[in-house]
């Protein structure tokens, strides 16, 4: 039994999502729930289709907010972790701030950010970055702290220079933990963008659309929008996983991918 064949990698998650929709549909049917209370999956997806021409541009905007915030948060988290790993004093000073930043309720910080940054894309980017930088910083910091001591000794005996050891051993060693942090961040990033839209939006956003649909009791459209938001979150996660597989071939492949003209001389 090979669980890693591509067919199974894709098939199993699809089946499990379909099962969720099936259970949802059964509950609606069995309890005979009215669509304005809670729609069936079909009604929700129907509303999504009917409003697609409005929703798609808004989704693009949400994706942009998520993307910019994600990249900003990842870069900040990574740089911060590398800086913190250099000296104990910096680490001691920064760590409490790191923890505090995550203890602040994100909803509570959203309103002040809007006052500070206006109603544009910036407060959303900052909220997403705020959420993403933490898991990235913590995982990279872990990665830097857990480089095999014996490997560093070997590097020292070989006469390795400080900067080369950093770039050839310490830094590459953070790649795997970095992706763990990015995957955690990816699932929360879209939530951050939506919170930003909710607080800072004048209406032309996914969150704004959903609020309008909610107040006019268009419940299928509310649920349809939720499905769309969730799909963006899942896509984001999958994108990170795909990039991870491409950039860390040593974890999934047994040999280096080598172009024909780069073969070893005979």
């Amino acid at each position: 039994m090979n669980w890693r064949t591509p067919a199974r990698i894709f098939l199993i998650p699809v089946v499990s999502i379909l099962l969720v929709f099936l259970v949802w549909d059964l509950i609606i049917r069995i309890f005979n729930v009215e669509p304005f209370v809670a729609p069936s999956p079909g009604e929700a997806l129907g509303a999504l289709r009917d409003n697609w021409s409005i929703l798609w541009p808004l989704a693009i905007e949400t994706i942009r907010e998520t993307a910019y915030g994600f990249v900003l948060g990842a870069v900040l988290g990574f740089v911060l972790a590398v800086a913190m790993a250099q000296t104990r004093i910096v680490q001691g000073l920064v760590y409490p701030v790191l923890i505090t930043s995550q203890a602040v309720p994100i909803i509570a910080i959203a309103a002040p950010l809007v006052i500070l940054l206006g109603f544009g894309i910036w407060p959303k980017i900052v909220i997403v970055a705020w959420i993403v930088f933490f898991p990235v910083a913590v995982s990279v910091l872990d990665g830097l702290a857990n480089v095999d001591d014996d490997l560093l000794k070997l590097a020292h005996v070989m006469g390795g220079t400080r900067s080369r050891v950093f770039f050839k051993i310490r830094l590459p060693a953070t790649v795997s933990p970095l992706y763990s942090g990015l995957k955690i961040g990816a699932t929360y990033a879209v939530t951050g963008a939506i919170i930003g839209e909710l607080v800072a939006s004048t209406g032309s956003s996914l969150a704004g659309f959903q609020r309008t649909a909610n107040s006019s009791l268009d419940t299928p459209a509310v649920w349809g929008t939720t499905i769309l938001m969730t799909a963006i979150g899942i896509s984001w996660f999958l994108l990170v996983v795909a990039i991870e597989r491409l950039t860390t071939p040593w974890r999934t492949r047994s040999t280096v991918r080598r172009l024909p003209f780069r073969r070893h001389p005979d």
Partner: peptide
């Protein structure tokens, strides 16, 4: 210098 642990770097061929 060589130890009992091979200490090969996983991301290098």
């Amino acid at each position: 210098y060589m130890l009992q642990k091979d200490l090969l770097v996983p991301w290098r061929s």
